[in-house]
Simulated assay, not measured.
Amino acid sequence: MINEHFFETREALLAQLQSDMQAQIDAVLAAEGAASLLLSGGSTPGPVYESLGQALDQRVQVALVDDRWVDVGHKGSNEALLKRCFPNHAVTGMKTADEKPQAATQEVNARYAELKQPFALTLLGMGPDGHTASLFPYAEGLDAAMGEAAPTCCAITATQSEVTGPLVDRMTLSLPAIINSKKLVLLITGEDKLAVYQQAKTATDHKATPVAAVLQQARVDVDVYWAK
């Protein structure tokens, strides 16, 4: 089921999202004593991450939903963003010394096997092309990453576009891993992405609009947060 949370301003959205994320983390910690938080990159959730990172319980494991295949010092690194926002936590990253992500899947999956599962909360974004995480339309590796037997992390090579830029090699949570979460959040802003989201709710070609597979699955509710 999809639960929509629409706001007049981005400030109101981020304030409510932070509160809701903290409440979910606290609830899982109280019930289970540990929790894992899977986060996407991007500038929009940055203020939420910074606020959460100031007092996040040490029992919470922080990890990436996906990342570009670049070193942490690169401006496109999602791992770098999370390390800045969560300086007191050992962020579980995806990048290895391998030249291509396809050579690193075994090592990255071993890292992610150390995370508490199901994940307490997974926060996704969405692109104007209908991708989420690094599940890009018709990308090399997409079929495997969206398959029922997919491992937690999969290598993806997207077709270069205005959305991807030149950094087409990625590592991403697979579709089964994304929905292996107690709470699943999709964060979007702007009228253009709202239109993509509305279409994705009923899209039948999930390879063309991968976010549709997340929205239409029945395993876990999706909480959609949107503002102009």
Rank of each mutant, 00 (worst) to 15 (best):
E191A: 07
D192N: 11
Q160P: 00
L187D: 14
E191V: 04
Y197A: 01
T159P: 00
G165K: 02
C154Q: 05
L167A: 08
E148I: 10
T152A: 13
L194H: 05
E148S: 14
P151Q: 02
Q198I: 00
A149N: 15
G190P: 02
V168T: 13
T172W: 08
T164G: 08
E140K: 14
A145F: 10
A195N: 09
L167Y: 07
G141T: 07
C153I: 11
T164D: 11
P176I: 07
P166G: 03
V168L: 03
E148R: 09
N180F: 06
L167I: 08
M146I: 10
I188P: 04
T189W: 05
A150H: 06
R170D: 04
S161K: 01
E140A: 12
T189R: 09
A195T: 11
T152K: 09
D192L: 08
S174Y: 06
T152E: 08
G147P: 13
N180G: 07
A155Q: 00
I188F: 04
V185R: 10
V196H: 01
K182D: 11
I156R: 05
I178E: 09
K183A: 15
E191G: 01
I188C: 04
I188N: 02
G141I: 05
L184H: 14
G165A: 01
A177I: 09
G190T: 03
C154V: 04
L142T: 15
E140Q: 15
T159Q: 13
A177D: 09
A150Q: 04
L173I: 02
I179H: 02
L194D: 01
L167Q: 10
M146F: 08
V163H: 07
N180S: 11
I156M: 10
P176M: 05
A149L: 07
K193T: 07
A139W: 11
L142S: 15
T157N: 09
M171S: 01
G190W: 03
K182I: 04
M171R: 00
G141W: 03
A144T: 13
K182L: 10
K193W: 10
A149Q: 15
G147W: 11
V168E: 02
A150N: 04
T172L: 06
L184G: 14
M146D: 12
T164W: 06
I188T: 09
I188V: 14
P166H: 05
K193N: 14
G147C: 13
Q198E: 15
S181R: 10
K193H: 12
T152H: 06
K182G: 05
E162I: 03
Q198F: 00
T157F: 01
E148W: 06
V168R: 02
Y138E: 15
E162P: 03
M171G: 00
A139E: 14
T164F: 06
D143L: 13
A145C: 10
Q198N: 13
Q198P: 07
L173A: 01
G165F: 02
V185W: 12
P151N: 01
